[in-house]
């Protein structure tokens, strides 16, 4: 079980719990605004862009090459940017805080 906090663009904080699947799916299930997941989670649309709160950045591994390349589609991307369909919900993510970009 991992507790994940999403902070939307209008500063709404949504705390959700998940055990499996991708963070994008968890966000969609819980109606987190700004995470659309248009490609269904195959790293093809960049509509699941989040920025990890620097304080919890160490909970995530490295983004793959394709994820890094896809992030360049978004001019708002920075070093904390991730496509959350590429993040699997595991215990390791417990406590992570993600800022929704759109």
């Amino acid at each position: 079980m991992a507790k994940i906090t999403f902070i939307t663009k209008d500063q709404e904080s949504i705390v959700v719990e998940g055990t499996a699947g991708s963070v994008m799916e968890l966000a969609v299930q819980n109606n987190v605004k700004g995470i659309d997941g248009d490609c269904g989670g195959v790293c093809s649309c960049a509509t699941c862009h989040v920025q990890v709160d620097p304080a919890s950045a160490d909970k995530l591994g490295e983004a793959s090459e394709i994820e890094q390349d896809m992030l360049e589609l978004d001019d708002d991307a920075n070093e904390y940017s991730r496509l959350c369909c590429q993040l699997q919900v595991t215990e390791a993510l417990d406590g992570v805080v993600l800022n929704v970009v759109k």
Binding site: E25, V28, N31, G37
Partner: peptide
């Protein structure tokens, strides 16, 4: 899109990705 990609290879319904959660 996953119909022809991943859904065929998953057995249970939890593999289907909803566009939005029911509550939404």
């Amino acid at each position: 899109p996953p119909l022809s990609k991943t859904y065929l290879t998953v057995k249970d319904e939890s593999g289907y990705i909803p566009l939005k959660g029911e509550q939404a």
